[in-house]
């Protein structure tokens, strides 16, 4: 059943986003988690909160789907859309950093590398991108008609 796939997807994405969100919030408070460097997690309280929200949306999907509520897939779709929005946001931020480095040549950006702008929002977003293309029909046909 397609729903089992969606449930597993939502479970994985939900846990990832909640965990990363909490890590971001902790780092934002200045609590060293030790994972910041290896996972490229910036300290950012509000950004972390947003991640927890996305994770919660995915986990809500798991809750409804496991209870046999078919409409629970809505939460999977919305979770995917939201994580894609955030992926776009972080990619734009990366673009802004690129401009600051190459065009503005700002002093603050000395020694900047593209990896410095790599954020969990981008690589976690890849997961949702896969989900998006896997369930593409639902997104494209429904969003364009009406």
């Amino acid at each position: 059943m397609a729903n089992t796939n969606k449930m597993i997807f939502a479970m994985v994405a939900g846990i990832l986003y909640v965990v990363f969100g909490i890590l971001k919030m902790l780092e934002g408070f200045g609590i060293e988690t030790g994972l910041a460097e290896s996972l490229l997690i910036p300290g950012d309280f509000f950004g972390g909160f947003c991640f927890v929200v996305i994770g919660a949306v995915f986990l809500y999907a798991v809750k409804e789907l496991s209870a046999g509520v078919h409409m629970g897939v809505s939460y999977v779709y919305v979770g995917i859309l939201m994580s894609l929005v955030f992926m776009a946001v972080y990619l734009l931020v990366m673009g802004a950093d690129l401009l600051m480095f190459y065009a503005v040549k700002s002093e603050d950006y000395e020694g900047w590398r593209i990896i410095d702008s790599m954020r969990p929002g981008i690589y976690l977003g890849l997961l949702s991108l896969i989900g998006y293309f896997y369930w593409k029909d639902r997104f494209t046909t429904e969003m364009t008609k009406v």
């Binding site: 909160f49 809500y60 409409m71 809505s74 939460y75 919305v78 997104f139």
Partner: peptide, 25 residues
């Protein structure tokens, strides 16, 4: 599909957090 999105974004618990997250973005 609109109904599906609405189901999530008007959820009793998730509606306001989703709104805040969108604003933050």
């Amino acid at each position: 599909f609109s109904d599906m999105i609405d189901r999530a974004v008007t959820n009793k618990y998730l509606g306001i957090p989703i709104f805040l997250a969108m604003m933050w973005a």
